[in-house]
Simulated assay, not measured.
Amino acid sequence: MSAPRRLGCLGAVGLFILVLVLLPVGGVAIHGVVPPLTTFLMVEQGLKGKKADYRWRGLNDISPRLVEAVIAAEDATFCSHRGFDMKAIEKALESNARGRRVRGGSTISQQTAKNVFLWSGRNWLRKGMEAGYTVLIEAFWSKRRIVEVYLNVAEWAPGVYGAEAASQKWFGKSAADLTPREAARLAAILPSPRRYQAASPGPYVRRRASRIQAAMGTVRNEGLAGCVLD
């Protein structure tokens, strides 16, 4: 291969790598200030004919109780980690190694990265990209912004995305007016929003919501949501 042709190939490879780096960084930087217009999950469900109910609300228009509830339920160390809960990951790996049901170790940061920037699935490519986006949003966004985006793009019922749409569907009120009990119920159904209901929950959701509501007191008293709530 001639020197000019070799340089041309190297230039093309370099340009490709540069684009691969700049696209994620640019997307994260933009969504640090601009709400996502949609997500891959919304698009996937839309292609199946399911209309999305997605209503963005700033964190000041969402009850602090819901912030406490999701931190209590999903990620109690949110304010102290940098995107990954290594103890939770170790426990998940140990559980999987013993052949038990796969346990998750995802933080709110990881879930936000997945929900906003990636498609659904569990393959290694997506998990690797999820880790990369998690590092980026922790670097570019404040903890408050991460929770704000998470609460606005999480699915809370089939085709229902975000705290405002969820509050209206399940309780007929604004997300700003959620009570501690209602917030705990919304957090309780997050792992399986297409299976469980927040308004008229069964025994499992009632028990889980009760535990979450109790843990919300710990979150509040120990300042575990201090990086989000003033």
Rank of each mutant, 00 (worst) to 15 (best):
R5P: 04
C9R: 15
L10D: 07
V13M: 09
V13R: 10
G14M: 11
I17K: 10
L18W: 14
L18N: 06
L18T: 14
V19Y: 08
V21T: 10
P24R: 12
V25N: 10
G26W: 13
H31Q: 15
V33G: 09
V33P: 02
V33K: 15
V34L: 13
T38L: 11
T38S: 15
K50L: 13
Y54P: 00
N60F: 05
D61L: 09
I62P: 00
P64V: 05
R65C: 09
A69V: 01
A72M: 06
A76V: 10
A76I: 09
S80W: 08
H81I: 01
R82E: 12
G83M: 07
F84A: 08
I89M: 11
E90C: 06
A92C: 08
L93P: 04
E94Q: 14
E94V: 06
E94I: 05
S95K: 06
S95W: 04
S95A: 12
N96A: 14
A97L: 10
R98T: 05
R98Q: 14
R100Q: 13
V102Q: 14
R103Y: 04
S106T: 00
Q110G: 01
Q110S: 12
Q110V: 01
Q111P: 03
K114C: 05
V116R: 01
V116D: 01
W119A: 14
W119N: 11
S120R: 15
S120P: 05
W124R: 15
K127M: 12
K127A: 12
M129S: 13
M129N: 07
E130G: 07
A131F: 10
G132Q: 08
T134K: 04
F140A: 04
W141T: 00
W141H: 00
S142R: 08
I146E: 01
Y150D: 09
N152C: 05
A154R: 02
E155L: 06
E155S: 03
W156S: 05
A157F: 01
G159M: 09
G159F: 04
V160F: 02
Y161S: 06
G162F: 03
S167W: 00
S167H: 04
K169E: 12
G172I: 04
L178R: 00
T179A: 12
R181F: 11
R181W: 07
E182R: 03
R185S: 05
A187C: 07
A188Y: 01
I189V: 11
P191E: 08
P191V: 03
R194K: 15
R194G: 15
R194N: 15
S200P: 03
G202N: 11
R206K: 15
R207L: 12
A209H: 03
S210N: 10
S210E: 15
R211E: 11
R211Y: 14
I212W: 02
Q213H: 12
Q213D: 13
A214G: 07
M216I: 02
M216F: 11
N221T: 10
G223S: 08
A225G: 05
C227N: 11
L229R: 09
D230N: 13
D230F: 06
D230M: 06
